[in-house]
Design a protein around this nucleic acid. Structure first.
Length: 803
RNA sequence: GCCGGCGUGGCGGAAUUGGCAGACGCACCAGACUCAAAAUCUGGCGGUAGCAAUAUCGUAUGGGUUCAAGUCCCAUCGCCGGCACCA
């Protein structure tokens, strides 16, 4: 009696068995493999099919490693502090601790449906005091090393989220979280000196097996450039202004200088005549949001009334202020060479400033210049001693020449800025610092950590730049740990990235009260071998986590400098027409019903089958029927196998080894969508081959074993049905034999002048003459004219060139 | 503006990296089973011409290299992503 494929009973059965007898065991001898998902923040909406994809990919990969006899570390946790969680709680009118807990429970339930081999004993939650004790501890260590410092400066401010933001959180002048226009606000902030690690963060990218795209994004974000700082004296004054330039070769062409309006000397350079205009310009600039400042296409500026002296030739050049110069990059002041820089050219044209060419393009000065010549290609002119030199050579040598002459120094600059680390919000780790009137900033003693986030009724953001914690007197008022005098606590909290910058270290030792992670376990189980998640964290989380890891390496906590050896970015699953799934668009597909109707195995396969895992894919519910039919077909094929004594035919044996080969090579290269199509194709082939004599047990068993990482429940069931009494995951990964994959007779294409004209069947090791002869025989009178050339590529093609 | 990536049937997508374009699946069409439908099974499914064998065109567009190009080179168009006054 044939029974149809019943996903419900099969999946229920094997979930229970795995719970009783886990398939992933640490016997202390096996090689470890750490496969990590980017942990989710517990949103109130639960998971949709897009979230599933990443978890299915990582689970397939983990199960494959288990079948390679490795002990796989595959943990899951919750990034539960931060803005999204807090905003959700405000909306629902509950305390974030409560809503976060509920959301975690719901998502954990959904993730368990995936039937992933997560080790739930390793679970972490960034809002757990036993966890954030160490988030705070790391901050204290950074403070002690001078890497965490306080600074008052204009920072990015999101008026909607009512908090300061890091540079990385501002996307096109808008808040990364809510999309509101970011403004500037002058606030005293905690900063982390990530710039101290800029060079290592850049150079160590070479060591990583990461997508080129992500490496490039980090490289660009760090933005290293080589150049020179050049000192210009101010005419009639003692002060000097230092500018940064990457084109010191064009120094003779500087015809003016521009300072950022925020530059400390800006105001002082004005004279009685220019003072009101200068002060007005500085004031107007301060009102502009970063969006306005970005979008202003027309250059604006004001002449200060002062002049700088070009150190090379003593030329007097006017000093201007303009908001196209950034205060926080380089020195906040630039020398302007309009002939060889687009922005300077535009500015010079608008304000009628002279343009002096110093590089002769193709050996001549450009007559009637309409745009700047920005290439460093050509011979120097109008440049005193430098005349006749090659610009490209001079560009490299000039910084050292300038340094030697005492006019400045060769220097390197980065676009990367220090990390604004304070948030004026409630739902985050309190920064463990006490402000003492006598001792200044004093860290909370390590034995007093964690510094608990006080439980309060009202936690909504104030919008004033003060944290909600500032209103809780009994928490704020404390005594200085150093001198015992009355003092006040720091009231800002940490950004969401604080916990996610190191959580992957904690999984392997999540109950350790004495250390962030024991040296032994860190050495044994880390770093992460495979990290899987969306590309949206390319410069945020991934840069911060690398920074934290390098710091922890420097203070001896871990013995590796890079946290994630290999990175895989899965593409997004979108709704119809590539529209991002969202509740407001009403195009969210929940996995819950699909699991109910088709089963976890089918949904797992379909998540992979929709498209290449690294690309975005549009979700279409109808397609899941295809994978369900495939599983049903396979089920029937195995169920109809009754005779274990069937010997495989040569064709079946070949099919078996081709199957192993195809699945293994495609899985190894992460081409998971073609793994699934490969299963379907070979299932169809087997079905055809087995029509007469049936299929041998070994071939069907091999199919079940290969399918195990992808559709684990049905694989176990089929494996058992075929008469095996151990788990399919203990079967070991099948090996293919190349010799058995080859057929004796192969079919190859025959072309005449490169056009397909038919096929011939020849022995696999057929020599050229016989192949050509056979091809000509097949072609008959289709071949006309004189044969000029005969091409035979064994196993591929015959091409006859005739005129 | 600069830097990446991509462009293949009605749709999602394959193509051993230069060697039979459209695997696999969805949708669709026809047939079988059925009183009927669903499910299932069998077959078909890029365009044009033809009853057909077959011919011919065809991987965004135009050129090139090659015995052979979806794949390599040059130019153009379109879409997506990143950065965006970083001197």
């Amino acid at each position: 009696m044939a029974t149809p494929y019943n996903h419900k009973s099969i999946e229920k059965k094997w979930k229970k068995i795995w719970e009783e007898k886990p398939i992933n065991v640490n016997d202390g001898k096996k090689e470890k493999y750490y496969c990590l998902d980017m942990f989710p923040y517990p949103s109130g909406n639960g998971l949709h099919v897009g979230h599933w994809r990443g978890y299915v990919i990582s689970d397939v990969w983990s199960r494959y490693q288990i079948m390679q006899d490795k002990y796989v570390i595959h943990p899951m946790g919750w990034d539960a502090f931060g803005l999204p969680a807090e905003n959700y709680a405000i909306k629902m009118g509950v305390h974030p601790a409560k809503s976060t807990q509920e959301n975690v429970d719901n998502i954990r339930r959904q993730i368990k449906q995936i039937a992933a081999v997560y080790d739930w004993d390793m679970e972490v939650n960034t809002t757990d005091p036993a966890f954030y004790k160490w988030t705070q501890w790391i901050f204290v260590q950074m403070f002690k090393k001078g890497l965490a410092y306080e600074k008052e400066m204009p920072i990015n401010w999101c008026p909607s989220c009512k908090t300061g933001l890091a540079n990385e959180e501002v996307v096109n002048g808008k808040c990364e979280r809510c999309g509101a226009d970011v403004t500037k606000k002058n606030l005293k902030q905690w900063m982390l000196k990530i710039t101290e690690y800029a060079d290592r963060l850049l150079s160590d990218l070479d060591k990583l097996d990461w997508p080129q795209k992500v490496k490039k994004m980090q490289t660009d974000w760090i933005g290293k450039s080589y150049g020179a700082e050049v000192d210009f004296s101010i005419d009639g004054r003692d002060e000097k202004i230092t500018v940064y330039t990457t084109r010191p070769d064009t120094l003779y062409g500087a015809t003016f200088m521009v300072l950022a309006p925020e530059h400390e000397l800006a105001k002082g350079l004005a004279n009685d005549e220019t003072r009101s205009a200068v002060e007005d310009y500085i004031y107007q600039t301060s009102l502009k949001s970063s969006v306005d400042r970005l979008q202003d296409k027309e250059k604006t500026g004001v002449f200060t009334g002062s002049y700088a002296i070009n150190p090379l030739n003593g030329a007097k050049i006017p000093i201007w202020l303009s908001d196209y110069v950034l205060a926080d990059y380089g020195t906040g002041a630039i020398m302007c060479v309009p002939a060889h820089d687009d922005r300077d050219f535009e500015f010079a044209k608008k304000f009628d400033i002279p343009i002096i060419q110093v590089i002769a393009k193709d050996g001549v000065e450009i007559p009637d210049m309409q745009e700047a010549y920005t290439d460093a290609v050509g011979t120097m002119i109008n440049s005193g001693d430098w005349n006749g030199m090659e610009s490209a050579v001079l560009k490299k040598e000039a910084p050292h020449m300038i340094e030697k002459a005492g006019l400045g120094k060769a220097t390197v600059n980065y676009k990367l800025r220090d990390w604004v680390f304070s948030r004026q919000r409630y739902w985050g780790e309190p920064i463990p610092i006490v402000h003492c009137p006598d001792c200044g900033c004093v860290p909370v003693p390590e034995e007093e950590l964690p510094l608990l986030l006080p439980d309060v009724e009202s936690y909504e953001p104030t919008g004033t730049g003060e944290s909600p914690l500032a209103a809780i007197d009994e928490w704020v008022n404390c005594t200085c740990p150093k001198c015992g005098k009355a003092a006040k606590r720091e009231t800002n909290t940490m950004p969401q990235w604080a916990g996610s910058s190191w959580y992957f270290l904690r999984y392997v030792d999540n109950k350790n009260d004495n250390e962030l992670v024991s040296k032994e376990k860190a050495h044994k189980y880390l770093p992460v071998d495979m990290y899987i998640g969306g590309v949206e964290h390319a410069v945020l989380h991934l840069l911060y986590a690398r920074f934290y890891t390098k710091f922890l390496y420097d203070i001896g906590v871990v013995d590796f400098e890079e946290p994630f050896t290999k990175l895989f970015n899965q593409g997004m699953i979108t709704g119809k027409n590539g529209i991002k799934m969202s509740k407001s668009k009403g195009n969210v597909v929940s996995p819950d019903e699909l699991v109910e109707d088709y089963g976890c195995d089918s949904l797992r396969l379909y998540e992979l089958f929709v498209g290449p895992p690294e690309l975005d894919s549009e979700w279409d519910d109808r397609g899941i029927d295809g994978v369900y039919r495939f599983l049903s077909k396979l089920w029937k094929l195995c169920e109809s196998h009754k005779d274990d004594n069937i010997e495989p035919t040569k064709e079946l044996l070949r099919e078996r080894h081709l199957l192993i080969h195809d699945i293994t090579t495609r899985l190894e290269s992460f081409s998971l969508n073609t793994v699934i199509s490969g299963f379907m194709e070979h299932c169809n082939n087997l079905s055809a081959l087995g029509k007469d004599g049936g299929i041998d047990k070994e071939t069907l068993t091999t199919f079940a074993v290969l399918l195990a990482p992808f559709a684990p429940h049905i694989a176990e069931e089929l494996y058992e049905m075929l008469g095996h009494d151990t788990s399919v995951f203990a079967a070991g990964w099948p090996k293919y034999d190349k010799a058995l994959m080859e057929a004796d007779e192969i079919e190859i294409g025959v072309q005449v002048n490169g056009k397909m004209r038919g096929t011939i069947s020849i022995p696999k090791d057929c020599d050229k003459d016989s192949a050509i002869a056979k091809a000509k025989e097949m072609l008959g009178d289709k071949l006309s004219g004189n044969v000029v050339k005969e091409i035979y590529v064994p196993g591929r093609i015959v091409n006859i060139v005739a005129r």
